[in-house]
Design a protein around this nucleic acid. Sequence first.
DNA 1: ACTAACTCTGACATGATGTCAGAAGAGACC
DNA 2: GGTCTCTTCTGACATCATGTCAGAGTTAGT
Lengths: 224, 224
Amino acid sequence: MMSEETKSDRVREQVAERAAAPSKAAQTRSAILDAGRAFLERHPFRELTVGNLMAATGYSRSAFYQHFNDLHGLMEALLDEVKGGIVEGAQPWLSGDGDPVASLQESLTALVDVGHEHGSILRAVSDAAPSDDRLEHVWHSFLGSFDVIVAARIAEDQERALTPEFDPMPVARALNRMDAGFLIQAFGSVEKSDKDDVLAAIMRVWLSTLYPFDPTVSIDGREH
Amino acid sequence: MMSEETKSDRVREQVAERAAAPSKAAQTRSAILDAGRAFLERHPFRELTVGNLMAATGYSRSAFYQHFNDLHGLMEALLDEVKGGIVEGAQPWLSGDGDPVASLQESLTALVDVGHEHGSILRAVSDAAPSDDRLEHVWHSFLGSFDVIVAARIAEDQERALTPEFDPMPVARALNRMDAGFLIQAFGSVEKSDKDDVLAAIMRVWLSTLYPFDPTVSIDGREH
DNA sequence: ACTAACTCTGACATGATGTCAGAAGAGACC
DNA sequence: GGTCTCTTCTGACATCATGTCAGAGTTAGT
């Protein structure tokens, strides 16, 4: 989960036996992260520059490079903060215990919550990713890891005949891109969509795709 | 559909009464577009630079600016080339005539075909968009226009009780983000996914979401 | 108070961008 | 074929953000 390596990180490792808690470094690092979060709450990533970021912290521009390799390194760190919440929220369904439908609903609710809370970060990361090799790899790996475990989870329910037969991997990919794209579109900018609408839509698609037999899911056709 | 304005465009308008077909301009413009397409077939947008692009054409770097405002302008032009095909391919279902399920299958097939053919362009545009105000607006408007017409189309079939009742707009958004994200992921880089797998997955999600009652769609649960 | 490591800073080199004035080229007209 | 005019291309330039580096300032241990 740790992401970046920084000069001072490497140096500190070399001398690691010594002092264990060099507080000042972590302190300004946090200040930078805070400034980044604040900035991205109101502006798109393309307007973020090392200059204006550090202006907001009171430190010099070059101080930035003691804590991050570049702006994409900063984004990687911000993403790490969010990753955990997403993985955790997805557990109910992914773990495979309990009622599939109910636990999927639970997981999707958690996912939408995280998206709603950290929308600007997710948007910024996905905006920043295409301009950097490394960040792009991190971001795609993150999404890709979900593809694998979602596909596995689908396969389970196919064995139990709860889910129709189909190649799980491409469907998992499709559903995951939907989540990412839709959440970022809905919660990525200043005017966020209504959380319940988003949840309802995502839930409908997942449920009708994976559990079309389930009577809870079904799908009142308004007449007949 | 016309996108960019270029110095020579504006100039040409001012002097428009005069000569009507100055061929040389359009010719080198095409050469640049060709070089761009070729480059993006093999490299990500972030590696595209006015310098290396024009090196491939044999013209000077500054010649580029007679034909496009910047690299994002080039991307806008490349996108315009693809837009038409997508809109056209989507017609069968969007028009609302004929069997909904069959025409949706037709439209999705066409969409996947376009995605497969122009994957690298779509990927490049979506990569380039976040770093430019204008291109981002064009790209999001493009996607957004589909949200509107897809939502309208869904509403129609809800009136005919072919589709379950739900708020069409968010579901349309979700499905469209899925298409965009999944197609770009599948066909955006050098190693493309299998076209049929992609089509099967997209089709399954759309059909189970929109036409869960249809017996054609259903959804063999492999046993019982 | 002294030393050593840690942290920050100003100055610099680099690389891509977009502009501009003028050179080269192409076509029309005599 | 020569000249004129408009079009297209080019080299040189200014700008801007980046990332590096050597050294100044700061902190803490002894």
